[in-house]
Amino acid sequence: MHGYANPARFLKVARPLTAWFGWGGALLIAVGMIAGLFLTPPDYLQGESVRIMYVHVPAAWLGMGGWTGIAIASLMQLVWRHPLSGVAARAIAVPGALFTALCLITGSIWGRPTWGTWWEWDGRMTSMLVLLFLYFGYVALANASEEKGSVSRVTAIFGLVGAINIPIINRSVVWWNSLHQGPSITLKGSTIDSSILWPLGLTTLGFSLLFGAIVLMRMRASLAEIRVEARLKRMAEA
């Protein structure tokens, strides 16, 4: 990993990877969405509203995956002092918050016709809302950091501590009686019929690639900002 501590080497890989992730993700999302909206059958109970799942599930996965990434980057920053870890964590925070919000919004829209309510304070929904607030706190702390383009140690510690919410979100429907249904896709298989399930894989992979592209773009922008600052400083001194 320390081979990529050198920003020049990182940028050499990140530049083409951004394009591959971005276009690959867009293509997969497009195919998955067309399939999910027009090719799959409706659910026997939910009817057409089952199709919200093709956005809701990837959004939930990326909201939680995003914070897992922040936690790993925070650990790398605190222990190994990897110079790019702060830049990466900072780049993940905003898209992570966006997908968490998207998950909450799509869930609410699905909940109204299915459950008969826009919002209920059950374990899954509450812990997911807490995740959104954690993201807001992280972004605020990152913006308050003195480090240019990176984040302060306090921010990294917050990123690590906040990770405790991730297993809670994951287990919330198992530990507690909740309105949200239990996990459909487990190691033992899926309780979603394969005729409904297959576009979900496409959109999940597609949104994940898009997320990766956004993070790489944001990291490159941060690194460029650091270089501009450094150059301006040198020019001022000259």
Partner: peptide, 20 residues
């Protein structure tokens, strides 16, 4: 107030039968 709780099983209408 009554809320419907959906379970984790999703399937097309023609498969609805003894399964659920």
């Amino acid at each position: 107030n009554i809320l419907a709780k959906h379970d984790e099983r999703y399937m097309p209408p023609q498969l609805e039968g003894e399964m659920h």
